[in-house]
């Protein structure tokens, strides 16, 4: 059933988890994101060394979808280069737009694949994409 896919165990665990929800000691970049439709707010913090994201975290308030998406994203991008993070961003946004992705690309999105069902819920698309759009902006700030 659609609702159980949207609020699957993996999504609700991420949404309630505080693991990635914290400030970084010395962030290289801090970027704000806002989704006016839900009022979801997010501040994404990245620590970068030699073009690699060595740590990532977020603080914010919002719906379960936006919070889960942010938590999943910070897990995925940790240890990735700027370019790799940019490619993940494009892959995630493509998935939410309902495009077919090959298996390797889907695998690269790790837990975030669980958000695929959001592509069929137009009202919640912005919730899932907010952290990723914010990441896009942060990557621009880094270059």
């Amino acid at each position: 059933m659609e609702i159980d896919a949207l609020y699957s165990g993996i999504i609700t665990e991420h949404s309630r988890s505080e693991r990635n929800k914290r400030h970084l000691a010395n962030p290289t970049v801090v970027r704000q994101g806002l989704n006016p439709s839900c009022g979801d707010e997010l501040s994404l913090e990245l620590r970068c060394e030699d073009g690699v994201i060595t740590d990532a975290s977020f603080v914010g308030v919002g719906c379960a979808i936006s919070q889960a998406s942010a938590s999943m994203m910070t897990d995925i991008i940790r240890g990735k280069s700027r370019e790799e993070a940019g490619a993940l961003c494009r892959a995630f946004l493509d998935m939410i737009r309902g495009r077919e992705l090959d298996d390797a690309t889907l695998d690269s999105l790790e837990d975030a694949v669980a958000l695929q069902g959001v592509s069929k819920m137009p009202a919640r698309v912005k919730c899932a994409t907010l952290p990723w759009h914010t990441l896009n902006g942060a990557i621009d700030d880094l270059t």
Binding site: S37, A64, I65, A123
Partner: peptide, 23 residues
């Protein structure tokens, strides 16, 4: 408690209930 109103509305909709959520 602990629930954003948009999640509440989405979940209640799955039970056939229409309420408003947001500001």
């Amino acid at each position: 408690d602990g629930v954003h109103s948009h999640d509440a509305a989405t979940i209640l909709d799955s039970f056939g209930i229409a309420i408003r959520a947001g500001a």
